[in-house]
């Protein structure tokens, strides 16, 4: 029980540090959008070759909460879709598995914007 919490801290921390080091040590100007896109796509690719699942097994939320985990869901959804529903599944499968999170984020964005004002 406590072991998986420690593992989540370790894996989650390491995944985030990689992003920080890329931002600080490379000469490119990296914006949040670049970071998000980079993590989702690389997470999906790593997942497609079967290397992300072991990371989730070990790190739990430490691997599923970073956006590479979002990429992992996309990839697994697409693979699953391709296997069970054929062509349509291959195209729509990724978003079938992630739709809940995306819709939740969008609608929360709308409701937060209705309730709050930006503070600056």
């Amino acid at each position: 029980m406590f072991e998986n919490i420690f593992n989540a801290f370790l894996i989650g921390g390491i995944i985030c540090v990689i992003g920080q080091l890329i931002m600080d040590l490379t000469p490119f100007v990296i914006t949040p959008a670049h970071v998000l896109v980079g993590y989702v796509t690389s997470g999906a690719v790593i997942s497609a070759v079967g290397l992300y699942e072991p990371l989730i097994k070990f790190g739990g939320a430490g691997a599923s909460i970073p956006l590479s985990g979002f990429g992992h869901s996309l990839a697994q959804g697409a693979i699953e879709g391709a296997k069970t529903k054929g062509l349509l599944g291959a195209i729509g499968g990724g978003f079938e598995s992630t739709a809940v999170g995306i819709v939740a984020a969008i609608l929360l964005g709308l409701s937060m914007a209705t309730i709050f004002n930006p503070k600056g």
């Binding site: 914006t31 930006p118 600056g120």
Partner: peptide, 17 residues
């Protein structure tokens, strides 16, 4: 500050370093 930030850079509530 805030008008310049949102015009030239990012939304003010975005967590950027």
């Amino acid at each position: 500050h805030e008008t310049a930030e949102r015009q030239l850079r990012f939304p003010t509530e975005l967590g950027v370093q």
